[in-house]
C-alpha cells in the first residue's frame, strides 16, 4: 500500500464481468504481487475523471493474487466503472475497515443472512469459512433477492447448495413460472434454519430495513445481540476517519466498521436519521 493512505495505487483491470442486469464484477490485478485483505473489508476505488467510492471486496482472501469487487451500477462512478475494459487502470486505496469475525465464530454454527448485492461483501467470509470448514458447526446461508434473475453468483450458490456441509436457502420477492424455491422475505427462512441458537454467530449484510427485521427474527430464535454481526453502510470520502461523513453516533463506519457487533450499534439503529 502507498505510504500516504489518501493516494491511490494503480490496479490493472483484468476483466469486467456482467453478473445480473445491474451488477458487475471487476477483476483487478495489483501492481505488487499480492493484495491481502480480511473478509468484510472494503477499498476506495477511483475511476479517472469520474471520482472515488467505497466498495467492499468480494474475492477470496486466500487468493490474494487478484482483487475482486462486485458492485451495482447506480451512480456516476459505478457506471463509469462498468464501462472499463481489460487493460484499463483504476486507483485503489485500501483495504480499510473491520472484518467478519471468522475467527471468533470458530466452534459455532454460522448463519449468514443477506439480501441483494449484500452477498458480495459476505462472499469472502463464505470462502474463508469453507476453507476451514472443519472448525465450524453448521454453516447456513440465507439469501434473499428481488427476483430469480437478480440472484448474485447463481452458479456458485448452486455449488454451495450441492455441498453436504452447507445449508443454502434462497428466497425471492417474486418469481415467474419456473422458480421452484422460496418466495417471500428472507426473514421467513430464519425460524426453520438449522442452527443452535445457543452456539451460533450470525453475519448480516443488506439494506438497513432488512437488518432490522432480521435481527428481530434472530432474537425470536434466542440469539443474543453480541453474537450477531452486521455490516453498515454510510457516505464515505476518506475511509480513514478524517472526513467525518460516515459517522454513526460515536463510530466512524470506515474504521470502527463496516462490520459491527450488533449490541454496539443497536441503540443507534433505533434512532431515526442518526
Amino acid at each position: 500500500m502507498n505510504t500516504d493512505p489518501m493516494v491511490p495505487d494503480l490496479f490493472r483491470v483484468q476483466k469486467v464481468r456482467k453478473e445480473t442486469l445491474d451488477t458487475f464484477t471487476l477483476e483487478l490485478s495489483p501492481k505488487q504481487k499480492k493484495f491481502r485483505f480480511e473478509p468484510g473489508q472494503f477499498n476506495m476505488l477511483y475511476v479517472s475523471g469520474a471520482g472515488e467510492i467505497p466498495i467492499s471486496i468480494s474475492g477470496n482472501p486466500n487468493q490474494p493474487e487478484s482483487l475482486i469487487h462486485t458492485t451495482r451500477a447506480v451512480g456516476s462512478v459505478t457506471n463509469a466503472m462498468r464501462k472499463l475494459k481489460a487493460g484499463d487502470y483504476l486507483g485503489v486505496r485500501g483495504p480499510f475497515g473491520t472484518k467478519w469475525p471468522v475467527d471468533k465464530a470458530m466452534g459455532d454454527d454460522v448463519v449468514i443472512i443477506t439480501g441483494g448485492i449484500g452477498l458480495a461483501p459476505l462472499r469472502p467470509a463464505v470462502y474463508d469459512i469453507l476453507a476451514k470448514r472443519g472448525r465450524y458447526g453448521n454453516v447456513v446461508l440465507l439469501y434473499g433477492a428481488r427476483t430469480p434473475e437478480d440472484i448474485l453468483y447463481p452458479k456458485e450458490i448452486m455449488g454451495w447448495r450441492s455441498r453436504f456441509d452447507m445449508d443454502v436457502h434462497v428466497t425471492v420477492d417474486r418469481a415467474a413460472g419456473s422458480w421452484h424455491s422460496n418466495v417471500g422475505v428472507v426473514t421467513k427462512l430464519i425460524p426453520k434454519a438449522p442452527f443452535d441458537p445457543q452456539n451460533t454467530t450470525a453475519f448480516i449484510c443488506g439494506p438497513e430495513v432488512m437488518i432490522r427485521f432480521t435481527t428481530q427474527e434472530l432474537k425470536k430464535r434466542g440469539l443474543s445481540d453480541d453474537k450477531i454481526y452486521v455490516s453498515m453502510e454510510r457516505n464515505m470520502k476518506c475511509a480513514i476517519g478524517f472526513c467525518g461523513h460516515c459517522q454513526l453516533g460515536p463510530y466512524f463506519v470506515c474504521k470502527d466498521g463496516p462490520v459491527f457487533r450488533y449490541d454496539e450499534i443497536k441503540r443507534l439503529l433505533e434512532i431515526r436519521e442518526v
Binding site: R146, D173, R174, V185, T187, G206, P207, V209, M210, F213
Partner: peptide
C-alpha cells in the same frame, strides 16, 4: 417489506 423492494 416486499413492497419496499429493499434490494433495488
Amino acid at each position: 417489506v416486499q413492497l419496499l423492494d429493499v434490494y433495488s
